[in-house]
Computed example of a mutant assay.
Amino acid sequence: MSEKTALSPGPASRVPTGITTGDLARRLGVSPTTVRSWDRRYGIGPAVRLDGTHRRWAPGDVAVLEEMCRLTAAGTPPAEAARAARASGGTPPPRPPVAAAAPAPGDVRREYRGVVHAAARLDGPALEALLAGAVAAYGAAAAWEDVMVPALHAVGRTWESSGDLCVEVEHLLSWHVSTALRRAPGSERRGPGAPVLLACVPAERHTLPLEALAAGLAERGLPLRMFGAAVPAEALDAAVRRTGPAAVTLWSQTRSTADHALAGHVAATGFGLRGARTAPLVLLAGPGWAGRNPPPGAVRPAGLREALELLTQRCGARSEDA
């Protein structure tokens, strides 16, 4: 074999570099059909095509598609997102700092759509960024009521209509919602004084609404103790007697879990010095408590914001008494 023949390029050396559409779709968390559709509709395509039809995506092409996904996850219409992704070459612009403000309806819709789309793609990094941004921009209460709850409901409806096909979407979204609420700013500035105890009743395991309340209290600098799901009655009684809380919030998602006897017992639990004993204010939070009057010493807030106001007033009054 001559040197010229030995050094001649073979078929393998002529194969273009880059990843296939299927590999790219798996990397982005979308379907190959979506990638091809974006190429046809918006010109977000690869620089190299094998035999004129088979797409091969180079690193620069991948970066543009990743920016396209980031923008659509944030609620940007696809055509506008495609133009911005092509113009940026796949490099996202720096995000300016956002000041806390009441969410405008259009902003909320964009945030909500972005969260739902990111959850459907199983895009954990996008979910983390979107939810953290909503909490930072609007506060925990508004982010919970206007972005997180609608997104959870939308994903839940999809799960119900498709059997178990979307259960992984709901689990991923719930985990990131919980993470965003626990990272809400304010925990480092909680003041002294009698805390607010937060607990699910013994048969209740839905904690996200209680975590939203905890995040709202933390933003206000109020002391709290979170006990989470399915707290046994004996453990709750011991915690009340040991901490002398200003208030106790009991969460019940359904009527089957609401424990009215336990609520009455907690509301009647006294602590403190003889002659100056006091009892906590009990908040019956959640739809499970509907249909019956609260026992003496307990109230049923209409929602998260009302619960925050009641607890803020209660903690302020206890601080003055102390």
Results as ranks from 00 to 15, higher is better:
Leu208Asp: 00
Trp251His: 14
His260Tyr: 13
Ala268Asp: 15
Ala212Gln: 05
Ala267Val: 05
Gly244Leu: 12
Leu273Phe: 06
Leu217Tyr: 01
His206Gln: 11
Cys200Pro: 12
Ser252Ile: 02
Pro232Arg: 03
Ala184Met: 10
Gly270Met: 04
Gly275Cys: 12
Ala230Asp: 14
Val196Lys: 06
His260Trp: 15
Val201Ile: 07
Pro209Val: 03
Val240Glu: 08
Ala235Arg: 03
Pro232Asp: 13
Pro209Thr: 02
Phe271Met: 13
Gly228Thr: 06
Glu211Gln: 12
Ala268Phe: 05
Ala184Glu: 07
His260Asn: 09
Arg241Tyr: 02
Pro209Ala: 00
Gly244Ile: 12
Leu208Trp: 00
Thr257Ile: 11
Leu250Trp: 04
Ala258Ile: 08
Ala199Cys: 11
Ala267Asn: 07
Glu204Thr: 02
Leu213Thr: 03
Cys200Thr: 07
Ala215Trp: 11
Arg274Phe: 13
Gly264Met: 09
Ala235Lys: 00
Leu181Glu: 12
Phe227Asn: 09
Arg190Lys: 06
Ala246Ser: 13
Leu208Arg: 00
Ala203Val: 08
Ala203Gln: 07
Ala184His: 07
Pro195His: 04
Ala203Arg: 03
Ala235Pro: 00
Glu234His: 03
Ala194Val: 12
Val231Thr: 15
Arg242Leu: 08
Ala229Cys: 14
Thr269Ala: 14
Ala194Trp: 01
Pro245Trp: 04
Leu250Pro: 09
Thr269Leu: 12
Glu204Pro: 09
Asp237Lys: 00
Arg189Val: 15
Val201Leu: 10
Ala239Leu: 09
Leu250Gln: 10
Glu211Met: 14
His206Ser: 07
Arg220Val: 05
Ala199Gln: 10
Gly191Trp: 02
Ala247Asn: 03
Gly193Thr: 11
Arg182Trp: 15
Ala203Leu: 09
Met226Thr: 14
Ala203Cys: 00
Arg205Leu: 10
Glu234Gly: 04
Ser256Arg: 11
Ala235Gly: 10
Leu236Met: 06
Leu273Val: 13
Ser252Glu: 11
Arg225His: 14
Thr257Phe: 07
Thr257Met: 09
Pro209Tyr: 01
Gly191Thr: 15
Ala194Leu: 09
Arg255Tyr: 05
Gly270Arg: 06
Thr269Gln: 13
Thr257Trp: 02
Gly191Pro: 02
Pro185Gln: 08
Gly272Ser: 12
Arg205Ser: 13
Gly264Asp: 07
Arg225Asn: 10
Ala218Met: 07
Phe227Cys: 15
Ala199Val: 12
Pro245Ala: 12
Phe271Tyr: 15
Trp251Lys: 00
Gly221Lys: 04
Pro209Gln: 01
Arg220Asp: 03
Ala199Asp: 10
Glu234Met: 03
Leu262Gly: 05
Ala233Leu: 04
Gln253Trp: 00
Met226Cys: 13
Ala238Pro: 00
Cys200Leu: 11
Ala199Met: 11
Arg241Val: 03
Ala263Val: 12
Ser187His: 12
Leu224Glu: 09
Arg190Ala: 14
Pro232Gln: 10
Leu222Asn: 00
Arg189Tyr: 08
Leu198Ala: 14
Ala215His: 05
